[in-house]
Design a protein around this nucleic acid. Structure first.
Length: 738
DNA sequence: GGCTTTCCTG
DNA sequence: CAGGAAAGCC
């Protein structure tokens, strides 16, 4: 018996063998229709709009601020994952710790790197340490072997503790290193070898911090610990020694840091602006909170606002109480500002400003975290028309209908198809790192006149309810607000109303109800807008972006410019037909596949009447069905061969039920949500197909490169009538309601 | 040459 | 699922 599992091999044997003979479909009048429509195609747009740059710069600016607040927020959200924010100070500590470790016989290959320590591997290691060294961290630092402890355990504990300690020390340094140049210089200085002096206060702080380590895996170490209490003391001494060494180095480091900062500050004291003042105060914060002897945890556990307040109080204590800190020289602006900082008005001003900064930073960070952490939940903005949406079925999160929330803003950029060309901004999902595993339906927009398409007329909605997502977005895009993320500019191509701007701006809404709600039905249907798609116009090869007729400069400008302006100049236009295929159309097509495997383009036009057909749309739809068939036949062949290998000898034994594996595979593919009842006829067709494959393989026909052709011929005749309900643009809602 | 389809790849 | 290549029909 031949090996019937060699599907891949056989597939390649049939490569380039046409098997479509006999499965031709009637081609409708689409060609003429398309050629007409093509004349109004608009060129592709630059996907890298200036708006993106602006928004991105905001994020960059946020990083650049290196504000304590932001760092705290980020740190809380992501532990020590500070790789995105390099801190030269961390490098110093890494170097120091590395030396220390080497000196103490520590073995940690990853410490070879003298650069930033905040790598992913170290994050992991940090976690490991936190988990394992919680009981009595000092113990694991002991460089002396324990008789009853394996060398592996000893090394591991030692390394872990050192890493934990280093991370904490780095945190201290980060708190101080707001000025990159200063930090860099400090780095240089400290590489030369820092003197060491230990303060018991810092030892206490270090010990206290260790108590904050996670209390996991305690039991595994408790046994070891309880068995060796005496050794503990010795190890504790050793640990303290090490800590003192480290802290001595740290103090030296800090002193140099301060000196450098002060000198730098006095050199640049003409820049007595707010940001520098703020930075200065933050550095002072770090100094004070470091030297006053408060626990780092105490500070780090505070909320950002409390943190600043506490730091400010410490500053006051220090500045009013002790004056031994190096003073700035020269009665210059900086000093004036500095002094004003001590006066009530100045203090109040600074406080207010800092709180403002703090709040803004928190909002930005919250937004960033939200965007990255939460999958884009489809949410129905209130500006959308009150469609007959099966809310429960589509799992639309109604938790937050505040249009000013991040989620909602982002959801405006979902796969909703917006007719307005300027709304092309709004059609791309955010470049989330998590999702978008599904292909993006090609979406082509056009501002041509209404197309009277067969099928039910599009639903018309009140204009006031039809504010497009973009214009809605513009309503909250005030000069004081900026998106933390680049707006998805020009993700979908749009067609310019050639020479007819009036027609472009008059208008009715073409937003399909289906496009507004059904797209939210399942995350599997999320629109994919990869950079690949964004970088070229898929449907206008005859109208490259450089084409003057295709791309209006004013449009480009407005698209890259103020969104408020855009909302002003671009009311709704065109008909209620959308010019692209949404994920719902894909879902609908998949369901239609249960009835027809070889739909004609005319048929597709009638069943997708809410779509403005053009060559691209037709091709895409046909391609969809081609892909459906491909999957279908692959499954059939696969299961036919499997049956043969399983010893099936008669087609009578081959039947497709709703329980069988093949059916489940197909249903999963075309009806993933399983919310549609697959027609019985499809089971019959599938069974016939399976038996055709089975017989062909049994007969050895698969040696013929085009052996599938005959099967295709058979199957293409088995198409059945697609229910009329599929002609409705809202068919998904109606179907899935049943 | 245009169009459709399959095959293949990513 | 999309893009591209190739095959095959009209």
């Amino acid at each position: 018996m031949p090996d019937h599992d060699s599907t891949a091999l056989l597939s390649r044997q049939t490569k380039r063998r046409r098997v479509d003979i006999g499965v031709k479909r009637t081609v409708g009048t689409a060609s003429a229709f398309f050629s007409k429509e093509r004349a109004t195609f608009f060129g592709a747009m630059n996907p890298q709009g200036s708006e993106q740059d602006v928004e991105y710069s905001v994020v960059q600016h946020t990083d650049g601020e290196k504000s304590n607040v932001l760092r705290k927020l980020l740190k809380r959200a992501n532990s020590y994952e500070d790789a995105m924010m390099p801190f030269p100070g961390a490098t110093i500590i890494s170097q120091l710790l590395k030396n220390n470790i080497n000196k103490n016989g520590g073995s940690e290959p990853s410490f070879q790197t003298s650069g930033l320590s905040s790598t992913g591997s170290e994050i992991h290691q940090e976690d490991v340490c936190s988990n394992s060294s919680r009981d009595s961290p000092q113990e694991c630092l002991s460089p002396f072997g324990r008789p009853n402890m394996s060398q592996f355990d000893m090394d591991r504990l030692c390394d872990e503790h050192l890493r934990a300690k280093r991370a904490r020390v780095e945190n201290i340094i980060r708190g101080m290193s707001h000025s990159p140049n200063v930090s860099l210089r400090g780095n240089e200085n400290d590489r030369e070898g820092a003197p060491r002096s230990i303060s018991p206060r810092e030892s206490y702080r270090e010990n206290k911090r260790k108590q904050k380590l996670p209390q996991q895996q305690q039991q595994s170490f408790q046994q070891l610990v309880s068995a060796r209490k005496e050794q503990k003391r010795e190890e504790r001494r050793q640990l303290k020694q090490q800590l003192e060494d480290m802290q001595k180095q740290l103090r030296q480091l800090q002193e140099k840091f301060y000196q450098i900062y002060d000198s730098t500050d006095s050199e640049n004291n003409e820049d007595g602006n707010l940001s520098e003042d703020s930075m200065h105060s933050e550095i002072i914060d770090a100094r004070v909170h470091d030297s006053v002897g408060r626990s780092d945890n105490e500070m780090f556990d505070l909320d950002p606002g409390q943190f600043i307040d506490r730091a400010r109080a410490l500053i006051r204590e220090r500045e009013l109480g002790s004056d031994n800190r190096p003073k700035r020289d020269g009665p210059k602006e900086k000093d004036i500002l500095h002094n004003s900082f001590l006066h009530p008005e100045g203090k109040h001003l600074a406080e207010t400003l800092k709180q403002e900064l703090n709040t803004a930073m928190s909002q930005i960070v919250d937004t960033v975290v939200k965007v990255f952490s939460a999958k884009p939940i489809r949410q129905l903005p209130q500006v959308f028309p009150p469609l007959q949406i099966p809310q429960a079925r589509f799992a639309i999160s109604g938790e937050n209908h505040n249009f000013h929330t991040t989620n909602q803003r982002l959801q405006c950029f979902g796969d909703v198809i917006i007719p307005n060309p300027l709304d092309t901004f709004a059609n791309v999902p955010m470049p989330s790192s998590t999702d978008q595993t599904e292909a993006l339906p090609l979406v082509v927009r056009k501002n041509s006149t209404d197309q009277s398409a067969p099928g039910p007329p599009p639903v018309s909605h009140h204009p006031s309810l039809h504010q497009s997502p973009l214009s809605a977005a513009a309503s909250f895009t005030s000069p004081s607000f900026r998106h933390p993320f680049p707006l998805p500019l020009m993700a979908y191509p749009f067609q310019n109303p050639l020479g007819a701007p009036s027609s472009a701006f008059q208008g009715k809404d073409r937003t399909s109800p289906e496009s507004l709600d059904l797209t939210r039905e399942t995350t599997s249907l999320r629109t994919k807008m990869s950079s690949h798609h964004m970088n070229h116009h898929p449907c206008s090869p005859a109208h490259p972006p450089s084409s003057t007729e295709g791309l209006s400069l004013s449009f480009i400008k407005s698209e890259c410019g103020d969104m408020q302006d855009m909302s002003d100049i671009s009311p709704y236009s065109g008909s209620a037909m959308q010019e692209g295929l949404s994920p719902n159309h894909l879902k609908k097509a998949k369901l239609m596949f249960f009835y027809t495997r070889y739909p004609s383009s005319n048929m597709l036009k009638t069943y997708f009447s809410d779509v403005k057909f053009n060559r691209c749309i037709t091709s895409q739809l046909i391609k969809w069905f081609s892909n459906f068939r491909e999957f279908y036949y692959i499954q059939m062949e696969k299961y036919a061969r499997q049956a043969i290998n399983d010893g099936v000898t008669s087609t009578e034994e081959l039947s497709i039920t709703r329980d069988c594996e093949l059916y489940r595979a197909l249903n999963m593919h075309y009806n993933k949500a399983n919310d549609f009842e697959v027609p019985e006829r499809f089971l019959e067709v599938a069974q016939i197909t399976l038996r055709e494959f089975f017989n062909a393989i049994i007969a050895g026909k698969d040696v013929d490169p085009s052996w599938k052709k005959a099967i295709y011929k058979v199957i293409c005749k088995l198409d059945s009538e697609v229910p009329d309900i599929f002609r409705s643009p809202n068919c998904l809602q109606e179907l899935l309601h049943e």
